[in-house]
Write a protein that binds this DNA or RNA. Structure first.
Lengths: 225, 225
DNA sequence: GTTACAACTTAAATTAATCGTAAAATTGCC
DNA sequence: GGCAATTTTACGATTAATTTAAGTTGTAAC
């Protein structure tokens, strides 16, 4: 999953980056409101971590702008130094998904992010299952019944994203955006998505046939039920 | 559906091309105002993506020219550098259907295009239904009740176009233009439309008789209600 | 009924998209 | 720095979609 960190304090931004990268997220940064708004226009994000006090203006504007866009469902988590209850209420009213007051623990942030994922996809726990396969989004593990399947980072991200969006066709562009990050930087006449999908399928199909993991020719992939 | 990209920045034009092609659109390019106006005279488009600043003149002229033509309903989306509020107002006054400031998200563009399609055809959602058949223009899927029907790209485009223009006779030329693109490049004494229509009909009629999918002799096809 | 043309059908040929493999490049870790 | 694992590139093989081609059927005018 991809994350945009909108934060001008570079030390904090880097700290979050390091931590979340380690947890398997793809990170992008914006140190100002302007850079952030350009990035938001150009990409879709799974999460936007938004500091409210930015050098070139108030973060609330970004929030409002984002809420004005159609067909987006980036989750927004507000980060701010202000302990002000007003900001919190105001932020959540404007449509933010959660709120963290600085200083906060990185594990707390991660826990909130997982909670949002569960809410967004209407999951009851950290486990998602497809047939006998079980994905745990918190531990980033996949099991077949009791047996652990070792997936690489990219394989896990692809599987996770397709399963979270089950029964929908996910185009290669969409998959690329969420697993690899910034679409514009990517050489698209490459077949790296196909290769990872192939390797993933190989690992999964050791356990049982995976006819539910379809290719939708000329569009992308779809995981059914 | 076919799209004309009127944009002199070739990198951007190619990027849009690649993205929209993957989403099933047929793309043509015009890098100058002159080429664009020639193409517009010769073909009808579902969408024209119009950059206002072109090397050989102002895009507004094209907009006015197009609005002067009778019996056209190409949807026009203006693309221009951010902040030019005047351009936006002026453009929409002149009859553009929407406006996107650069840089914009390709997904945002796609969402706007779907919105315009819905508006143009007075649809309330992304679903269009004919009897028990349901087309979803966003996911590019067709269902019969709950069962999914697998159509190829061309089959889907034909069905979609005929259904969007239901109760009207659609000529082979018209269908060719919108599904395949540039009419002049196409060998017209071929029967490829017939072949695809036949295959499409075969797939649909597995579910129920499709007497509403008529052939209008020596003119074309029509889908009734 | 005959003729002329349009549409339909089928199968083969062509083209395009995806899959599979392996080697090259990169990354992460000790 | 060097080794192992992962990611990416490159390319031939495979499979599916599209187009061509040729024959057949249907329709309307004479």
């Amino acid at each position: 999953m991809n994350v945009l960190i909108v934060e001008d304090e570079k030390g904090l931004a880097l700290e979050i980056d390091e931590f979340l990268s380690h947890e398997g997220f793809t990170i992008e940064h914006a140190h100002t409101k302007n850079v952030a708004s350009e990035k938001i226009f150009v990409n879709n994000y799974d999460f936007i971590l938004l500091d409210l006090t930015l050098p070139d203006g108030d973060g609330f504007d970004l929030l409002q702008m984002l809420k004005g866009l159609k067909d987006r469902d980036d989750a927004i988590i507000i980060l701010t130094a202000r302990g002000a209850v007003d900001d919190k209420v105001h932020g959540l009213e404007q449509g933010a998904d959660d709120y963290l007051a600085k200083p906060f623990s990185l594990n707390e942030l991660l826990a909130r992010m997982h909670a949002i994922t569960r809410r967004k996809h209407k999951l009851e726990s950290n486990d998602i299952t497809v047939k006998e396969f079980r994905i745990n989004i918190q531990n980033r593990t996949v099991h077949y019944n009791l047996e652990r399947i070792n997936l690489t980072k990219k394989e896990f991200e692809i599987f996770n994203y397709l399963v979270l969006n089950k029964n929908r066709v996910i185009s290669r562009t969409n998959l690329t955006e969420h697993v690899w990050g910034d679409v514009l930087e990517i050489n698209s006449d490459s077949n790296f998505v196909d290769v990872h999908v192939k390797n993933l399928r190989k690992k999964l199909s050791q356990f049982e046939p995976i006819e539910w993991f379809e290719t939708v020719r000329s569009i992308g992939y779809r995981v059914n039920i």
